[in-house]
Computed example of a mutant assay.
Amino acid sequence: MQAEAVAGPGKEGALALVLGLGAAASLVANPVFGALCDRARSRFGGRVPWVAAGFAGGAAGLVLLAGARRWWPVLGWCVVQAALNAAHAAPSATVPDQVPVRQRGTAAGWSGLALIVGVAIDTRLAHLGDAAAPGYLGCAAFLLLAGLPFVLSRPRARPVAPTRSEWRSFLAGFWIDPRRHPDSGWAWVTRFLVDLGTAIALPYLYFLADVVHVAGSKTAVTIATGVNLAAVLVASLVSGIASDRLGRRRAFVCGGALLMACAAVLMACWLTWSGVLVAAVLLGLGFDTCSAVDFALLTQVLPAAADRARDLGVLNIASSLPQVLAPVVAAALVTGPGGYAALCGVPAVVGAVGAVLVYRIRSVR
């Protein structure tokens, strides 16, 4: 809404700029804050202060966005992305800190349920009133409440005290050598391609309004998101628990990614409201099957226990970098000869390649 108000016909380019710069902030913030919380010590535990500060900073960024004019959304969204990636790094590392390998798919499934609840609530909050400000303020208030369970539970990692030489090599630690850790490298490539395919098809609202010609596109986004989340609800725990019981991760990641590719093809070929809803179901089933089990897989290819949050942050660059690239690619596809058909077709190909490459990982079945 803000991009359209500021840029008018150039809304896709304006949205690409804001989202791309915000994603660049998250790309740096996740591994850096992860490395810091690996080494932090406090009476509250090493991870908790970063979560508390991240949620508070994220809420402040949303308040800044509520009053944004002209290009202020760029700054506000960068603050939100950087702060929430600080908050995200610590809970992600808590899973390998505390959960046995044989239960990590289930833990990832529960995280998927948390995603459903969060998105369902915030999708509704984001549409409070006819302007953007009430939605931002509602999301900021909810964000502060959402951080309390983790902060109050005060989960503790077992940080390794850094030596002087470790601090000297702080920056060097952000490179995971794919020759020494090939499975980490292939896991990074797989996640990057799958997430790039998903992120390219981001401008949902513009697609519904400009191509499908749905009246009341804001309401349509809410409905489509609800249908998508219902499918995610089905896939979340089922895929995580099944991968634990079968002792297999790669088949679920591959199957979920291919299902998302099918949803993208369907969106390109079936340009109706019914097609959007069917694609939303397939996308929900594929996304959570892939993402939940992929997270469990990532925790099993981490190079070192002492640097879990940092290494997860480095691997999560595979999710952040597509957010930087995708808005630029998406804007070029939408405004080019292929239009929205290309916007759906290209992600299908990219995601399918990522699905196949997961079988290059050898240490996890």
Rank of each mutant, 00 (worst) to 15 (best):
C254Q: 06
V301R: 07
V238W: 10
L283Q: 15
R245K: 13
L297W: 06
Y206A: 09
S239K: 06
A224I: 02
A309R: 11
P203S: 08
G284D: 00
A296Q: 03
A235Y: 01
C254N: 06
T299W: 02
S217D: 11
S217H: 14
A230W: 03
D307M: 03
L259P: 06
A263M: 03
G240N: 11
A199F: 12
A209Q: 09
D288P: 02
A261L: 11
L259T: 14
C262A: 15
H213I: 03
A309W: 05
A268R: 14
G284C: 00
L285C: 12
C269W: 14
V221Y: 10
R245S: 12
A224N: 02
C254G: 02
V293I: 13
W270A: 03
V212G: 01
L302P: 02
S274I: 08
C269A: 15
L205V: 12
A309Q: 06
G256T: 07
A242F: 03
T222E: 14
W273P: 03
F295P: 00
L208Y: 06
A201Q: 08
L271F: 07
V232I: 09
Q300A: 10
A231F: 00
R245V: 11
A268I: 09
Q300V: 10
L229W: 03
V253M: 09
G286Y: 08
G286M: 05
S236W: 00
D294V: 13
A230Y: 01
A280T: 03
F252Q: 10
L259M: 13
L205W: 05
T222Y: 12
L229F: 07
A199C: 13
G197Y: 01
L237A: 11
Y204Q: 04
W270G: 01
I223G: 06
A224E: 01
G240H: 03
V211H: 05
V234P: 02
V227L: 01
A263S: 04
A251V: 13
L196G: 06
R245I: 10
L277E: 00
V214Q: 08
A201W: 01
T272E: 13
A280Q: 07
V194A: 14
A230S: 09
G197K: 00
A201Y: 04
I200R: 01
